[in-house]
Nucleic acid binder design. Structure first.
Length: 447
RNA sequence: GCGGGCGUCGCCAAGUGGUUAAGGCAGCGGCUUGUGGCGCCGCUAUUCGGGGGUUCGAAUCCCCUCGCUCGCCCCA
């Protein structure tokens, strides 16, 4: 293949996709703003140590998935594999936490060197929130509600919220030793991966997909039994708050997230339409991370939502319900006006007119060819524009433009409702076009 | 990192050793030199991801390679 192409796992987003992304992003922005979150943007590149210390040396993300390299100053740099560590670093670096709790959101590309598969790429995109200095159980439910409401507003359905508590480091320490000693007695039954993890990261054996291991785990000690009373009551309070907010959840005692910094609340929102990579949104509390990165002990909670996976479920929802909310968000951008022009004078006037209409805020597509009217109308139709403005030699001579409704819903072919408008005083024409454009838009966004 | 499937025009896709590589969509042109959504006609791959080999002859067989895809691991 001599043709140059993108790196494996790095995908281009073409215009058909980008307009969907924009729709999702702008809706997400609205929600973040409503929930009191402010945006933070951090570099894509950080010193490797940030992730090694923040995410945990023993995790897969750090152990085998980072894009790391030495820069020209021989410093080890890494393309960020997730957002939380960077956000915390930035907050510490700029003393944000001295000003009280920070409710932040971020978005952008993340990089993990993995084999691509459905819903997984090497460069992927997340939007996420990090609430730093926020401690109450109610706030756990509140950040989850933010994700839940955003997804609901996007029209995405068939989602499930799974939640668990990981307790305190002490709780986990206690549980780990109980679990390991129990598993060691059954080591011969464990699959090879789990035997490995018995030494490296035993808690993660809990969400093994190996059937035999899963069956064995039925009788294994549960984390819950190692929880201190405080951890237990905290978890109950989070669940109570979710009940108060009428957010449905499933407590999954085997939910153990792969990043070391999580403790207490951990949760995932999954879809049954994503294949093996079912998690759309994942997050939890990380009360130890800020201290670990050199700050004062500060409680915090956050989540990240995978944009590519979100788009997949959004598209599935749009297909399932073509008149629903998701479908309206997935719709392609369409010009408000298509300008059909033919003849030299007509082209000159159309060029000027198009620009004036654009200045008035209209999305105008002008046919730059000089081909037959029939051809131009065909393209006008395909563009999806609700109306065409026609300038030919006749109109050019008379200083007018002809307005014609397109689209089968508005006029039948040959049903020739056309009006001439002066191009010397565009006010009335612009008013008519803007009116039409607005009603078009509200139709599509209200679905 | 490990396993399965697959690579023919921008997209979908037939073809599985024999002269010029179906078809559909999209695109362009025409029927219609000023009016679209339908229809009809024409044009659009010397070439089958790339390289090498077998053969009189290969998109079709073999080897290598690159890429895509699904799954494992793990995560968004």
């Amino acid at each position: 293949m001599t043709q140059l192409q993108s790196l494996r796992g790095m995908v281009d987003l073409l215009p058909e996709q980008t307009c969907r992304w924009q729709a999702v992003e702008s809706l997400a922005r609205q929600h973040f703003q409503r929930w009191g979150c402010r945006e933070i943007r951090t570099p894509l590149l950080e010193v490797t140590e940030l992730f090694a210390r923040g995410i945990g040396e023993a995790t897969d993300v750090v152990g085998k998935e980072m894009y790391s390299f030495q820069d020209r100053g021989d410093r080890s740099c890494t393309l960020r594999p997730e957002g939380t560590a960077s956000v915390v670093r930035a907050a510490l670096q700029h003393g944000l936490l001295a000003q009280g709790a920070q409710r932040l959101w971020y978005g952008g590309p993340m990089f993990r060197y993995e084999r691509p598969q459905a819903g997984r790429q090497r460069q992927f995109h997340q939007i996420g929130v990090e609430w730093l200095g926020v401690t109450s159980a109610a706030s756990d439910a509140e950040v989850i509600a933010l994700a839940w409401d955003l997804l609901a507003d996007l029209g995405v359905d068939r989602l499930a919220l799974e939640i668990n508590t990981l307790g305190t480091p002490d709780d986990r320490q206690l549980y780990r030793s109980r679990l390991v000693s129990w598993l060691e007695q059954h080591e011969n039954v464990l699959d090879a991966d789990s035997q490995q993890r018995l030494r490296t990261n035993p808690l993660r054996i809990l969400d093994s997909k190996n059937a035999q291991t899963r069956e064995l785990l039925q009788d294994a000690p549960m984390l819950e039994q190692s929880l201190a009373a405080d951890s237990r009551s905290r978890h109950q309070a989070v669940l109570q708050a979710l009940d108060d907010l009428s957010i449905p959840y499933v407590v999954n005692p085997r939910l153990v997230r792969g990043l070391d910094y999580y403790g207490h609340t951990a949760f995932e929102i999954t879809s049954d339409q994503l294949g093996a990579q079912a998690t759309v949104c994942g997050g939890g509390r990380y009360n130890g991370l800020i201290q670990q990165l050199g700050g004062a002990p500060t409680p915090a909670i956050g989540w990240a939502l995978g944009m590519e996976r979100l788009l997949l479920v959004l598209e599935a929802a749009a297909t399932a319900n073509p008149s629903g909310r998701a479908a309206s968000l997935v719709q392609a951008d369409v010009p408000d006006v298509y300008v059909v022009n033919r003849g030299e004078q007509a082209h000159r006037q159309a060029l000027i007119l198009s620009r004036q209409l654009r200045s008035a805020g209209l999305a105008v597509q002008r046919d730059e060819s000089d081909s037959a009217f029939g051809k131009q109308f065909k393209r006008a139709d395909r563009s999806g524009a609700p109306v065409a403005l026609v300038i030919g030699e006749e109109e050019a001579d008379r200083g007018v433009v002809r307005l014609k409704a397109l689209k089968s819903t508005l006029s039948e072919p040959g049903d020739d409702q056309q009006e001439d408008w002066s191009i010397n005083d565009l006010g009335p024409l612009i008013a008519v076009l803007q009116n039409g454009a607005n009603s078009e838009r509200s139709e599509t966004t209200q679905g």
